[in-house]
Amino acid sequence: MTILVIAEHENGAVAPATLNTVAAAAKIGGDIHVLVAGAGVGAVAEAAAKIAGVAKVLVADNAAYAHQLPENVAPLVAGLGAAYSHILAPATSNGKNILPRVAAQLDVDQISEIIAVESADTFKRPIYAGNAIATVQSSAAVKVITVRATGFDAVAAEGGSAAVEQVAAAHDAGKSSFVGEELAKSDRPELTAAKIVVSGGRGMQNGDNFKHLYALADKLGAAVGASRAAVDAGFVPNDMQVGQTGKIVAPQLYIAVGISGAIQHLAGMKDSKVIVAINKDEEAPIFQVADYGLVADLFEAIPELEKLV
């Protein structure tokens, strides 16, 4: 049994979600190969070779794979992946974009966002916004799976010494091209990898008031998230959204400020180790999942909290 893991990378570095995906592969068992596809990804391949538990790194370095366009990357993965027992990718926007295209090319069903490995062919995944957990068995010759990073503890980024092998294939389908991107700038930790997350909701009232959360987050070394209500109201950009349709986080500490706790939001954070809710409405559903609840006006509680931590 040999498993192919599709590496997620950005700015010449391996993204943390790749380490969680390798951890899921290790639970399945067998040799683990990592595919690094992109343009100018020599440094990424070297970094991938150092990941603990990786036996081989395949590098497809070609202009056709820049920006991870699925029309070009999916044929590469399907071509290489047909020889493997499993193909795994992190359930990031890239993984979700590319892998179903690979599965369809291989004529197999995909299993999305697994949170646990039961055996080499059986996996657990949340459905209905995390309100039910399904155990799914795959009889496919190649099992195509995306991995929810928060379901698996990351393997060490150092300690391995895998062989690096170039892959000659290049697919340019000529059907799509990259036009541009607009990335949100942030000095704080990445939301999905942060140990502490402070999130604001509609109760923040406006975007300017998020400065109180940023100040608290900086003191705690935390990332800042938001509910869909805060995003839709234009307080913050949508890549900060935590929930079923945004990012899934499972930090050590999640502080929900002015968030009522709709099921769509809970789907994105209820696996956090400790949940704190600060809300002036003591009937808010968020208090049903919070380990510690404080019924208070957030504009008084947050500055005080910032002073005390």
Partner: peptide, 24 residues
Amino acid sequence: STNKTLKVEAPAARSAGIKVKSVA
């Protein structure tokens, strides 16, 4: 389909938390 759902369970419930009285 190559996938088969063996079972569907309720997620583990979180134990009830407590309400604190102050930020301190």
